[in-house]
Amino acid sequence: MKHSGMKTRKILSTSLIYLILIIISVLWLIPVLWVVLTSFRQEPGAFTSNFIPEHWTLDNYKNLWTNTVYPFKDWYINTFWVACCTCAISTFFTLSVAYVLSRLRFAFRKPYLNVSLILGMFPGFMSMIAVYFILKAVGLTQNLWALVIQYSAGAGLGFYIAKGFFDTIPRSLDEAAKIDGATNAQVFFHIIMPNSGPIVVYTALMAFISPWNDFIFANIIMGDNYNKWTVAIGLYQMIQKNNIYNNFTQFNAGCVCIGVPIMILFFILQRFYVAGITGGAVKG
């Protein structure tokens, strides 16, 4: 009797968990669904009283890419270009700093660790105006290189996760190589890199995604030169008060055009991402 009671309780708790998980899934998917549905909606305007469009259309996508009012295509290409350059430069910076701090011992090491900890505590864009003036002094404002420089320049401070990963690669590997006469550079390129697939992919993925996300710096650096905007500024401006009625469905189409590729990229690389963020933690 008691046994079957426990069994019922177990079934009850399992079904309760299923119920909660279903509710959570719905809550998490509804906003996504809403964006996708709205992007196919024919009725103009920001808000309609029905969740599902009355008339379906592909015009929002067509208008988004071909219209003459705002250059969404340019924004997309700009962002892609900036993302690729940033990805290459800052991945290299981050990984080399992480390797050096993890493996080599030199006088400057402890100070570097402490200073980077302190620098990380300043609000990132407290200094945005100063960065703007520095870029202006070298004549780079309203230029895509300015964004690449700004996104990559700080990469040497984001080494924590990669360093944690390198710390877990056994030292015996490099020592064996060194006995065979390898230099530190060879150890880095031939031993550490091939053994760090997940963290390389993770670092590159993060560096690639950040330009799609950044609104603050891009906005300040590009100002009103809308041909050089990135998608983040563009989409933000599209739904400001004056524009929202005309642009809202196209805004949603834009969100889909940005969200879907990044989502696919993310799902393909998900296991690297998990390995990246849990890095040392799981192994420790």
């Binding site: 910076f93 700093v97 400057f108 620098l119 200094s127 100063a130 960065v131 320049a153 040497g156 401070l157």
Partner: peptide, 21 residues
């Protein structure tokens, strides 16, 4: 090797993080 690897990242930090701060 640490000098080689750190020079560019440190210059980046110096001019776009430290100097502005």
């Amino acid at each position: 090797f640490h000098g080689t690897m750190l020079t560019l990242p440190v210059l980046g930090i110096l001019f776009f993080t430290v100097l502005p701060i």
